[in-house]
């Protein structure tokens, strides 16, 4: 979780990630941020995020992202 928060802070430090639940639906993160985010998460957690995981629901909150990361880690 800490690691993920660090990545997000780096992308946009003005968002309160611990409480945000509509990062995508609320247009807080744009497409360029998503690309950075996916790249950084893949590197940091040593996983490959296949396109099927790239849906808004998986990126709307830190909790959703963590859940996605764990699912991928379990699969691998």
């Amino acid at each position: 979780m800490e690691e993920l928060l660090e990545i997000l802070e780096e992308i946009n430090p003005d968002i309160d990630y611990e409480t945000a639940t509509a990062l995508i639906d609320g247009k807080m993160l744009d497409s360029f941020s998503i690309v950075s985010l996916v790249t950084e998460i893949s590197d940091a957690f040593d996983i490959e995020i296949s396109p099927k995981y790239l849906v808004p629901e998986n990126f709307n909150s830190v909790q959703a992202m963590m859940k996605m990361i764990e699912t991928i880690q379990d699969e691998e």
């Binding site: 995508i24 497409s31 998503i34 396109p51 790239l54 849906v55 808004p56």
Partner: peptide
Amino acid sequence: AEFFSFPV
């Protein structure tokens, strides 16, 4: 525009 975040 929002689809560019999720290109699939």
